[in-house]
């Protein structure tokens, strides 16, 4: 799949933002006034910034309002509704903390649940895809939620939670990669089933329909950079998971914590790039590619 920068940025930043909103919602840290304002500003910048980035890949962003209508069947529609609901509820909760020094706990819990639901619905957009065997697993929502909670805890300064959640996310990440590497073969979809010609013999793509490229190949048969996948996995594990934990085990300082956050985000960006670039869509089979 084509690793569109807008979608990578969106899923990474909004995951982090909604993760932070989750922790703020359950009152960890229990902040009020200007400190609360700063935390909420960071969370909203990430969550809303991510949502804005996601509209860059739309053909008609001016019609985005229509995307809230099909929650009965569409995970993308559900994601939009959860995101807006989470942002509205958390805004009311945040206003109480910032301006009135009052914590309406119930509102915070609802906002936290909606923030988590947003990350879950985002992950289900990918996990529902029968056509991309690497994504089609319950491990996908587990991984994206773990990353979001870990990153949110990191921004919320919940060091003990980070030290538990980042290793959990790292384990899920490794499991997700390990499963993903054989997912396409396990799915059973081959050029033989795609053409129905497998009963006659070995099928080989002889000639594509056209000499040039097309939307399908650009979008779904992206192959650039897969050769660097192993290196990028090591980089993602080191920056996204190992280094932040190491930095937080050292005596606490705000400078080190900032480095931990930057390193984590860089690692997750690399992991998210691989999430798309390594994912193989079955339509590539028709073109003799994966």
């Amino acid at each position: 799949m084509h690793p569109a920068p807008s979608v990578i940025t969106f899923t990474t930043l909004s995951g982090l933002g909604f993760g932070l909103l989750f922790w703020l919602g359950i009152g960890l840290p229990a902040v009020t006034g200007w400190v609360a304002f700063t935390f909420f500003a960071i969370a909203y910048a990430l969550a809303v910034g991510g949502l804005m980035a996601s509209t860059f890949h739309l053909g008609h962003p001016e019609r985005a309002i229509k995307a809230f209508s099909q929650w009965r069947s569409s995970w993308l529609s559900r994601e939009g509704i959860c995101a807006v609901a989470a942002l509205v509820v958390m805004a009311a909760y945040g206003a109480g903390l910032v301006f009135f020094d009052a914590r309406i706990a119930m509102l915070g819990w609802i906002g936290a649940a909606l923030s988590l639901a947003t990350v879950f619905t985002t992950s289900m957009i990918y996990a529902q895809m029968n056509t991309v065997p690497r994504w089609k697993t319950p491990l996908t929502p587990a991984l994206l939620i773990a990353i979001s909670l870990a990153g949110g805890a990191l921004l919320a300064g919940q060091i003990s939670a980070v030290l538990i959640l980042i290793p959990i996310a790292a384990v899920l990440q490794v499991l997700w990669w390990a499963r993903g590497d054989s997912a396409f073969a396990v799915s059973g979809t081959t050029l033989a089933t795609a053409t129905g010609l497998g009963d006659i013999g070995t099928v080989r793509a002889f000639e594509p329909p056209h000499t040039g490229t097309n939307y399908l190949l650009r979008e779904m048969a992206y192959q650039v950079g897969r050769k660097h996948a192993r290196k990028l996995r090591v980089i993602a594990l080191a920056l996204g998971y190992a280094l932040p934990v190491a930095l937080l085990l050292a005596p606490f300082s705000h400078a080190l914590a900032l480095v931990a956050v930057i390193s984590h985000v860089a690692g997750i960006l690399a992991s998210r790039w691989l999430f798309f670039a390594e994912a193989e869509h079955v339509v590539g089979l028709y073109y003799g590619r994966r």
């Binding site: 739309l58 019609r63 056509t131 939307y215």
Partner: peptide, 27 residues
């Protein structure tokens, strides 16, 4: 007139039956 050009339907189709028109931004 309702399509926002998100491209998700093209991802969901195993047959490559949907193509986003690059000039119009709709599926």
């Amino acid at each position: 007139s309702d399509c926002i050009g998100c491209g998700l339907c093209a991802w969901a189709c195993p047959y490559g039956a949907r193509e986003m028109d690059q000039a119009e931004g709709v599926m």
